[in-house]
């Protein structure tokens, strides 16, 4: 049984809080359903006088957004999966072996997780240029490992540590190798944790802006955050289309988040996020 409020007054700050966080998104959605004429007319209408799908039609059928949606998906999935492949053994190593310098390596991983991306744009630009990977999806996938790999190692190490060692001991006594233990025992047991880490990494790369802006400005490889700028030119901005594209871009994130809100909040509380 959920208990009610200690005092009805608590609903006042709750309402203010919701107004601050939710109203801008309400406005984004409302604006995406207004015609250009209605967007640029005074007085402002709180709900669309005539609900129109024109902005969505324009975004979906008459712009590069579908292509950028695809690019974003490829880059986010690619980088997230590669990071997990490399992070799984590393996290197992950190959680199950005692070795010299383990603490130092773990601290370095945490530091690279917290490192502001602005410090890396110039060197990574030069590096990608050297590898001929500027303006390629592969290049973007690789640099996004800077975001996804430390995050995955850090979170997965914590998850592995929470699994009792006794389960492995039996297998090791039966002659299983460490790698066998990792793949046959640890991975199946950690599947829920891996799914969460997968989604965290996916969201982080889906939302990424500055690397994409610096390394992928050709229209064949642009991702959604960069593509959104295409609706504004020097003279004119198509706010209806921008709001519609914003809604489309937020949908996958909103779906992941609402489906997993408890896990998200729990993950943040365990201190894995850098904000």
């Amino acid at each position: 049984m959920k208990t009610g409020a200690r005092s009805p007054w608590v609903y006042l700050p709750v309402l203010i809080l919701l107004a601050i966080t939710v109203v801008p998104f309400f406005w984004m959605i409302v604006s995406s359903f207004k015609s250009l004429a209605e967007l640029y007319s005074m007085p402002i209408t709180w709900l669309p006088k005539v609900t129109t799908w024109a902005n969505y039609k324009k975004v979906l059928f008459d712009s590069n957004i579908p292509r950028y949606f695809w690019n974003s998906t490829v880059v986010s999935l690619g980088s997230t999966i590669i990071a997990l492949i490399f992070a799984t053994p590393a996290a197992y190593g950190f959680s199950r072996f005692e070795f010299k310098g383990r603490g130092v390596w773990q601290t370095l991983i945490l530091m690279s997780h917290l490192l502001p991306s602005a410090a890396l744009i110039v060197p990574l630009y030069i590096f990608l240029g050297y590898l001929n990977l500027l303006n390629t999806l592969v290049g973007l996938i690789l640099v996004y490992l800077v975001l996804t790999l430390p995050l995955s190692i850090w979170m997965l190490t914590g998850y592995f540590k929470s699994i009792p060692v006794e389960l492995e001991e039996a297998a090791i006594i039966d002659g299983a190798s460490r790698w066998g233990v990792l793949f046959r025992i640890m991975l199946p047991l950690s599947l829920p944790g891996i799914v969460v880490i997968f989604l965290y990494s996916f969201v982080a790369t889906w939302n990424e802006f500055i690397f994409a802006l610096s390394f992928a400005n050709d229209s064949t490889v642009k991702t959604l955050p960069i593509g959104l700028a295409e609706f504004s030119t020097e003279y004119d901005t198509d706010w209806g289309a921008i709001m519609a594209a914003s809604v489309i871009m937020s949908l996958p994130i909103a779906a992941i988040f609402l489906g997993l809100q408890k896990v998200f909040v729990g993950g943040m509380m365990s201190g894995a996020m850098k904000g």
Binding site: L17, F25, M28, N207, I253, L258, F264, G275
Partner: peptide
């Protein structure tokens, strides 16, 4: 609690454009 987190979860560019 979940709705409070929305500005933080939604892509930064979307918040910026809105």
């Amino acid at each position: 609690r979940a709705l409070t987190l929305i500005p933080w979860v939604i892509p930064g560019i979307v918040g910026a454009m809105t």
